[in-house]
Simulated assay, not measured.
Amino acid sequence: MAVTDIPLAATPAPAVQAQAQARPRGKLRRLLRAAPYLAAIAVIGVFAANLAWRASGSNQWQLELEKNGVKVYSLKSPGAYNKQYKAVMRGKYTLNQLVGGLIENSTEENCKQHIPGCLQVQVIRPWNSRTMSDTVLWKLQMPPPFAPRESVIRSQVSQDPKTLAVTVDVIAAPNAIARNPGAVRLTHMQNQWLYTPLGNGEVEIQFLQDIDMGGFFPAILLNLAGAQQTYMFIHDQLPGLLDMPAVKQARYDFIQEAR
């Protein structure tokens, strides 16, 4: 074979080059054409997952967290997006002191000192010992990008004459005052405190929380962090509120202590 007959591994033919360049462009065009379908599939998947989550739930309390004497349970009801939470603990408190935590702490100074993100407290209807209730607006800062939340809540106190257990129902009253711009007003809150005397100066504290943050606030954030946030409130923040002098010294004619 002559030297000139040896094939040269040189530059590919122009047709081969054009074909190689066309392949990535062709893949890109196919991806772009498929993008709307992929997006539709993703939307359908998220929608189906939301439907499945909303339909799920045992409607039973399940223990999620237990430490430092505090137990936190959650309950998922079929048809609901948000979980409910229940915290249970024991402590050496008087019933008057526990009720005082409600009545004496509705001040901006106490809120900003003991509740992270507190922006404002406004007493709408002061405590009334005849109706055993008050109505207070609380405004809290939320982490970005969420707007501040306002909760106007009516607290109602009652005591069982036989067991002396004290119940405090905390319910949203969103229309008790005109809404303020720049904040989302909570419309659903059905919380409850139950203080049950156990003897020897000890009380069982049970806190039920059923709340919807409203506005732009994904339910998944509340469901993922709810147990830990409930624990932190009961274990870290509540003792500071209850140990304030005005609260520890509180005495009310309508609360009977257990002997």
Rank of each mutant, 00 (worst) to 15 (best):
P143M: 10
G117Q: 08
L140E: 08
K112I: 08
V152H: 03
R154C: 09
S129V: 13
I115Y: 06
M142R: 13
E150I: 03
S158I: 01
D160Q: 12
N105R: 15
G91Y: 00
R149H: 05
F146H: 03
I124C: 08
Q122W: 05
Q97E: 15
D134N: 15
Q141V: 09
Q120A: 11
P144K: 09
E104I: 05
Q113A: 15
P145F: 04
S129A: 14
R154Q: 14
I124Y: 06
P143C: 08
P144H: 07
S155I: 03
M89Q: 14
S133G: 10
K92D: 14
L98I: 09
A147D: 12
E109Q: 10
V121C: 01
M132P: 02
A147Q: 15
V99F: 01
P148Y: 05
L102G: 11
R125H: 11
K112F: 06
E108H: 03
I115Q: 08
K112A: 12
G117M: 06
M132W: 04
P145V: 04
Y93Q: 03
V136W: 00
S106K: 11
F146P: 03
E109H: 07
S129F: 04
N128M: 07
S151I: 15
V152K: 07
D160E: 12
L119A: 03
Q120V: 05
C111F: 01
V152P: 01
V99I: 09
N128T: 07
P144I: 09
V157T: 03
Q122P: 04
L95N: 00
Q97H: 06
V136A: 11
V123Q: 14
T135P: 01
N105M: 12
R90K: 13
F146M: 07
I124N: 03
S158E: 02
E108P: 01
C118H: 02
G91M: 02
P126H: 05
S155T: 15
S155Q: 08
E109P: 02
N110A: 14
T94C: 03
T94Q: 03
G101D: 02
N105D: 14
M132G: 06
M132D: 07
K139V: 14
A147H: 12
E108S: 05
Q113Y: 10
P145I: 05
C111H: 00
T131H: 11
W127V: 10
S158N: 04
C111W: 02
T135F: 10
N105Y: 06
